[in-house]
Design a protein around this nucleic acid. Structure first.
Lengths: 244, 244
DNA sequence: AGTGCCGTAAGGTCAGACCATTGACTGTTA
DNA sequence: TAACAGTCAATGGTCTGACCTTACGGCACT
């Protein structure tokens, strides 16, 4: 990335690896991951071990590990038999990154909701086509939970989010799941007002969730799209007028 | 997030902030960014300064900075008047994260392309509706550039990506632009084969780009959707059979 | 068989030092 | 006066070596 847009002549005197040592280590490990020498679940050597292998100090190794950890490639456990473990599939990090990006740029809540509408409605054809019986059962189970929560007066956006994420999983496309997950993750949580109004809207929202689940069970794409469209539109309205 | 799904009783003995100090610092700074106390372009205090303010050692501060850097929130410059500068939101990091996940075979190229299809086609209604004259001129300009590159035999995926990103901007929704940008960033670049085949496909791709631009000029949504659909489908085909 | 203690391996943090890079300041020279 | 070169200070990059904290596993005791 940083190397793009060079002038001419730059190939004559190639850059003398002036980059950070820790970054070089990160890159090396990334390569190992890419080409399959390291697979999820594997454990990297201990910090003190890596120091010797790379011939650098522990501080440097640790910085490299911090970066890998922040990227979501490894998780680190302390204690005996701890260490850096290649993470099993975790879409959370990149979703979080997306949310960070969204939340710190000049986005209005309206824009986010509009994007959400496109993705969630666009995913419906796949969902209607691919949802398995298990998927549908799970959806109805979440609806019941939501209903129960409403009755108890304990409805939160978290419950709604779980439904939407589970719904996304019905498309059986990890990339899509990830996108929708990041919409419903830290991002929505940061819209405080939306969370506080949740109890009020819970009843109607749950009803719509049920309609959605039924439409999917009936493989009725049109109905699903209609309900989802209204559902999100209402969210949009709720959210937009306070986080302007 | 980590606090969800607790058992009962947990509120009696609250967790004694056993987390990493560096992580706490990261969170603090993230908060400052979120609530607008720090805006892009600002410079954080120097490492030695931060040590004193937080009352920790320099190593710890540096680890926090590594994380913030990896997350793409700051860039770091050395030398006098260097330091950590808040970056303007850039989608590259997210795209890189996507690419990492893809390379760990958490995601297949096919899934990503499917998601891309949904977003890019879903954005078309907005694009057709909102594209201004400037937008359309810019699109045609990019098409011309592409045509020129094809004639010279210098067509690269980069040119195609620029078109798609500019197209996304026509929707005048920053969130959408960012999503599509992260698809066309380091992610596509990492599909080496796709890059190498680019020259061959360039001619046809450019033709389709032109058709797209024309459809948008004519506010012909159906045509735009048809062309885009074919366009991405072909990419999907090209990409899927080697990165299985 | 169960319980609790303790050792050990691993990450987390600290303090202080030195090097490398860079931009600004200053002084010299044509 | 303008251009160049040298110096200096600020700042990130790395190293060393020490100590603390956590957690797993085994051992001794009950």
């Amino acid at each position: 990335m940083a190397a793009t847009g060079r002038g001419e002549k730059d190939d004559l005197f190639s850059r003398v690896s002036t980059s950070r040592v820790s970054q070089v280590i990160v890159d090396q490990i990334k390569v190992l991951i890419r080409d399959g020498s390291l697979t999820p679940g594997d454990r990297l050597p201990s910090e003190r071990d890596l120091c010797q292998r790379f011939g650098v100090s522990r501080v440097t190794v640790r910085e490299a590990l911090r970066v890998l950890e922040a990227t979501g490639l490894v998780t680190i456990k302390v204690g005996a038999h701890g260490g850096a473990f290649l993470t099993a599939p975790s879409t959370d990090r990149v979703g979080e990154g997306l949310a960070d990006l969204l939340s710190m740029s000049v986005l209005t809540a309206g824009e986010v909701t509009e994007a959400r509408k496109i993705v969630e409605i666009g995913a419906l054809p796949l969902i209607v086509e691919r949802a398995t019986k298990d998927d549908i059962d799970a959806l109805f189970k979440l609806v019941e939970e939501g209903q129960h929560a409403v009755d108890e007066g304990e409805y939160t956006v978290d419950i709604s989010a779980r439904f939407h994420i589970r719904l996304a999983e019905c498309a059986h496309n990890t990339a899509l799941t990830m996108l929708i997950q990041s919409f419903h993750g830290p991002l929505l949580m940061s819209l405080r007002e939306a969370r506080e109004q949740a109890p009020i809207m819970g009843k109607r929202g749950t009803g719509e969730h049920r309609e959605l689940a039924e439409a999917i069970r009936n493989r009725d794409l049109a109905a699903a799209q209609r309900v989802m469209s209204e559902h999100i539109a209402r969210t949009a309205q709720r959210v937009s007028h306070e986080v302007e």
